[in-house]
Nucleic acid binder design. Structure first.
Lengths: 195, 195
DNA sequence: ACATTATCATACTGATTAGTATGGTGCAAA
DNA sequence: TTTGCACCATACTAATCAGTATGATAATGT
């Protein structure tokens, strides 16, 4: 990795930390630079604006933070219920960078930015569509294997699972980590109700 | 209503509009005053700080915006599934002030403020606890009427329903109003799976 | 009628914001 | 060797922020 790439990465890494904890709008560029060795000149050399940096963050960092956990679970076992359970559980519990207090950066950004910035919304929508598609494929495999009735619409279930994830990430901010366990039990019951 | 009360109400009303659409931190006091006849002196006479105004907003306005829809549904019919379905549906569709694009103000505030402001978190938590309790009572009634097995923990189901609401409000910001219909079908299937 | 206080209005402050202007440095191609 | 550009550093700007200082006016009790 070249020196320039290292600078770019350092900016995105620090920006991710601050935006994850304080939100995009509340995170200033000065604050990002404060605790790094990067200067404002370097920042605006790599990103033509704060918005541009934010969009890069969605594509580069968030994707690399969440996507591995997802693909690791889907298709891992032959039982789609096991896989969908593990996927959400690992996203909630196993990921070392994400905490209950601050939730999920992708979910947070949708909340904050989707209504007020079209570019953010589009990038986040694309991200969600990829996740949805991956879950759909899992469900279709289950239907082809006879584990699940074809009466179920794969898209409906996929989006419902994502909806639950968004919901529990928000609830966790208020109720704390103990709710994750409560939620996972009821989530599992939901998965078992899919026949 | 006295003149002073009218001023206070006008501030809270305008603040609600702006915070609902842009978030708490992105809403400035100057912006609140801009399109009203209220001045900064009046603002700081009624609220000792922006934070104080925000806390008032949770207790006063949000509660009055959402709570009526909730109590109207719960206990309305003898079937708890019908009531829980109607509650969420009305929150999503029937409420005239809330839109799909901007979601639910209470959910939004949890996302933005719960991790970074203890007073907000506490006020929002109290709000959620009241909702949870109301749903729990609906579920206990159903169990006493023999509509639902007592194996189900009322708190678990109540929180799961709230979780779904939080989730769908976030998803709607990206997927648009059409998803509400898709969600409601799967939500109904979930309610029917409670036996 | 008078005093007191509630309710506001105006003008300010210092801090912070995103972004710019300008110049410097090192490396790569010519 | 020189030219040019990628990469970065420093110092600035105009706008905006929450909050304050100070005084005016209106309501209210005595």
């Amino acid at each position: 990795m070249s020196k320039a790439d290292a600078t770019r990465t350092e900016i995105l890494k620090k920006a991710f930390d601050l935006i994850y904890k304080n939100g995009y709008q509340a995170t200033s560029i000065d604050h990002i630079l404060e605790t790094t060795s990067v200067t404002k000149g370097a920042f605006y050399h790599h990103f033509k604006s704060k918005e541009e940096m934010g969009i890069s963050l969605i594509d580069d960092v968030i994707k690399k933070e969440i996507w591995p956990t997802i693909v690791k679970s889907l298709g891992a076992s032959k039982n789609f219920r096991t896989n969908l359970y593990k996927m959400i559980k690992d996203l909630l519990i196993a990921n070392p960078t994400l905490t209950c207090e601050y939730g999920c950066p992708a979910v947070n950004l949708i909340h904050e930015m989707a209504p007020i910035n079209e570019r953010f919304k589009k990038a986040l929508k694309k991200n969600m569509a990829e996740w949805r598609k991956a879950i759909e494929e899992e469900i279709i495999r289950a239907q082809e294997a006879g584990q699940l009735s074809t009466d179920h619409e794969p898209e409906t279930i996929a989006l419902h699972v994502i909806t639950l994830y968004h919901g529990v990430r928000n609830m966790g901010k208020v109720l704390g980590k103990s709710y994750y366990a409560t939620f996972l039990k009821e989530y599992n019951r939901y998965l078992q109700s899919l026949q």
